[in-house]
Amino acid sequence: MHRKKKILIAAAATLVIGAGSAFAYWSTTGSGTGSAATASSNGTITLHASFADGLTPGGSTPVTFTADNGGSSSLQVGTVTSVVTASGTCDPTWFTIAPVAENQTIAAGASGVQLTNGGTLSFADTAANQDSCKGATITLTLSSN
């Protein structure tokens, strides 16, 4: 029994010494860096225009603009420029709309935000027969800088 006691004491001493070495460490200093690139783009603004039906030669109609921003950060609408197209044989050069300075920030995730400034779509009254524009669909293709 005396031998068993010596073995137990030796085993316990080994465990204590072993446990002490498990918590040993070296002290030192350190340095380093970390980096990641930002997004190259946050998407684009989707612009919409609306104006009344029934425009006739010599007339004009107000145009309102709205914007959607599906991105994850705010985006800026600068000047809205419109390109006019017309269905059928209607001459789109008879229609004009000047660029409209907005300079408005559209919040992330916003939809249907009415832009501050509107435009005016005009239909020129020329000496030519403009019957080709009767019932034509006029489309404004919008862009912003």
Rank of each mutant, 00 (worst) to 15 (best):
L121V: 00
S74P: 12
G18C: 15
T93F: 03
G18M: 15
F23N: 06
N129Y: 01
T81F: 04
A108T: 00
G119W: 15
G118T: 10
T56M: 13
G32A: 13
T64E: 11
L121D: 08
A86L: 06
T29G: 10
V80H: 02
H2E: 14
D68T: 15
N129R: 00
A22T: 15
V100T: 08
S122T: 15
E102F: 03
S73R: 08
Q114R: 11
Y25N: 03
H48W: 00
T85K: 11
F65I: 06
S21E: 08
P99R: 09
V100D: 07
F95D: 04
G32H: 09
V63S: 04
G70P: 15
P99H: 09
G54P: 01
A101F: 00
S40E: 14
G109E: 10
P62Y: 01
T81Y: 02
P99Q: 09
A13N: 02
Q130F: 08
D131G: 08
P99S: 12
K6M: 09
T81M: 02
L75S: 05
H2Y: 06
S50G: 14
A36Y: 12
N145Y: 06
K5T: 13
D91V: 01
V80M: 03
N69T: 11
S41L: 09
G20P: 01
T137K: 07
I17H: 01
T66V: 02
F23T: 13
A98T: 03
A67D: 12
L140N: 07
S143K: 13
K5V: 14
S27A: 14
D68Q: 13
S87V: 09
L115H: 06
L75N: 02
T56G: 12
A98M: 00
T105C: 02
T96M: 10
L75G: 10
V63A: 01
S41W: 12
S73Q: 14
D68C: 13
A36G: 13
T120Q: 09
G30L: 13
G43K: 07
N69A: 11
F51N: 12
S143C: 06
S144D: 08
T126R: 04
G71D: 07
S87M: 05
T79K: 05
L140G: 04
T137N: 08
Q76Y: 11
P62C: 03
G118Y: 11
D131T: 08
G43P: 06
G119T: 14
D131M: 01
Q104L: 11
T66C: 05
P57V: 02
Q130M: 07
G58R: 07
